[in-house]
Amino acid sequence: MTRKRIVLTVLHRLAILAYVAFALFPLFWLLKVSVTPTSLLYTEGIRLWPSRASLEHYAFVLTHSSFPTFFLNSTIVSASTAVIVTIVAALAGYAMSRFVFRGKYWIVGLLLLTQMFPLVMLIAPMFKMLSPLGLTNSLTGLVIVYVAFNVPFATFLMQSFFDGIPKDLEDAAMIDGATRFTAFRQIILPLTLPGIAATLGFVFTAAWSELLFALMLISGNQATTFPVGLLSFVSKFSVDFGQMMAAGVLALIPACLFFLLIQRYLVQGLTAGAVKG
């Protein structure tokens, strides 16, 4: 019995270890190549760590490429999207959580519908709609599109956070002399702060990763976002592996930071519409 237990425990730990290795290895490899000097890349083949590590690729990417601009563009787009989505979704999520009203089920249905249809469908009409408005090739256009794409999921997410706050608190505040809106601002919102942070994180990551619409809507370097920049870099200079991977590591950094922020809320985020992959 105890022998069997020990064997099982060892197997369990080995399996966990295997999963962790599987999850981390591609990221490790990205990091490894990014610090391998070009001269060693081909000679050392598949060694796990180069005999000499250097940051030359990072230095090049940061000083001699447009990646800093791309990075900045992506940050502006993702941060604005996250802030706007969170504000708008907080309002709607509050209404869904606190009001009983005719039409609520229609709204829920509408939000769910937007999660079911293929977004690639919208690429062509979106381009046709935004181009006469001068919103192609502009960060503003991207923000508008990303806000709309993320708002349904964020609304469900915010609703789930509001649902977790007892209704009694608002009732108490209204009896204490607050209007509903004051109660929302002074009592409910402060209590939803962790949820708001999580929503910001989810939306930021989603906007940071978006590729297809950015590819379609952006063509000049001025408004290029990181994914588009990286992809065109790959197709143009597909031999500078070290530089590409250094840029890849840079793209990973904000995603990982936000992952830390939302880690506690993954379950809520994934069930809030089961949308963002």
Binding site: D168, L169, D171, A173, I175, D176, A178, I187
Partner: peptide, 20 residues
């Protein structure tokens, strides 16, 4: 009349204290 203008106080079963 809105609750805030009725000048009444209420004690809830859950107490409804503001946690923050």
């Amino acid at each position: 009349v809105a609750p805030k203008d009725r000048d009444i106080a209420m004690v809830f079963q859950s107490y409804a204290l503001y946690p923050h």
